[in-house]
């Protein structure tokens, strides 16, 4: 059983081969880690999956159908949502509105009913805001619903991006360094929230993250890329011991007794 599958995906930027034949499969309702040193191609992989980039070779299959090369809004509509490494909240909207923006599936009434605020519009906005508040509560942001998004601290903006992505009712959620800029307490809270998404909402999670303790404790499988190529895949325990992973993170030949630390 596979929800998301990449088969020999290539991506070239001019003379740079950013991805070289990357393949992996993500099982439904799993938490899948994607790690690698800076510049390894992790965000490029996310961009290929979400339609921001068109792959130059290979296939991206989601739920059995080819999605490689589809426009981003289509991919999002099919149930692939993401957050961003560099935060991209809608800064001058409120926290609640940020989440509501992604809820177009819940929206039906037209322009006129919005302007005169009739019942159809009220029902739409009601349903949108109820759902948006539920998601904010899951991410621990219910108290900030009325705040301007750009004024939140970084950690909260990252969690807001997750809430917004969940509004798309995704089957798979791609998280691009969600713990960046979080302190260890926030990161532990994030770990609990990621588990909740999978356990309670049934969302499959693909996680790009440099915080190794988070990756190792929350992911069931981990895929490692370096210089655009797969160098390893396995369980956290296998990855921790893998010689090529150690080499990629710590430099050449790992010497005996050295353990992998945070990258």
């Amino acid at each position: 059983m596979t929800l998301l599958a990449l088969e020999h995906v290539d991506k070239v930027f001019g003379g740079l081969r950013a991805l070289r034949g990357v393949s992996f499969e993500v099982a439904p309702k799993s938490i899948f880690g994607l790690i690698g040193p800076n510049g390894a191609g992790k965000t490029t992989l996310f961009n290929v999956v979400t339609g921001v980039y068109r792959p130059d070779g290979g296939h991206v299959r989601f739920d059995g159908a080819e999605i490689g090369g589809l426009p981003p809004a289509r991919v999002a509509g099919l149930g692939v949502a993401r957050t961003f490494q560099n935060i991209r909240v809608f800064r001058s909207m409120t926290v609640l509105e940020n989440v509501m923006v992604a809820g177009h599936k819940l929206h039906r009434s037209g322009v006129l009913s919005a302007i005169v605020r009739n019942t159809a519009h009220a029902n739409d906005e009601g349903a949108l805001s109820v759902r948006a508040r539920e998601l904010l509560e899951i991410l621990g942001l219910q108290g900030q619903a009325g705040d301007i998004a750009g004024s939140l601290p970084y950690g909260s903006q990252r969690r807001l991006e997750i809430a917004r992505a969940l509004m798309l009712a995704p089957k798979v959620l791609l998280l691009d360094e969600p713990a960046a800029g979080m302190n260890s307490t926030e990161a532990r809270e994030l770990e609990r929230q990621i588990r909740f998404l999978r356990d309670e909402l049934g969302v499959t999670v693909v996680l790009v993250e440099h915080n190794m303790s988070l990756v190792m404790s929350v992911c069931e499988r981990i895929h490692v890329v370096d210089h655009g190529e797969t160098i390893a895949e396995g369980t956290p325990a296998e990855i921790r011991e893998h010689p090529r992973v150690l080499a990629a993170y710590l430099g050449e030949e790992p010497s005996a007794g050295r353990t992998e630390r945070e990258a």
Binding site: A73, A76, G77, F90, M93, V101, A102, V111, D124, M167
Partner: peptide, 20 residues
């Protein structure tokens, strides 16, 4: 709805696209 989408686009067009 369209007005909200316009505001989202003016703040970040790439994120808006990826939010469907």
């Amino acid at each position: 709805w369209t007005g909200r989408a316009m505001r989202a686009l003016s703040m970040n067009i790439d994120a808006a696209r990826l939010m469907g």
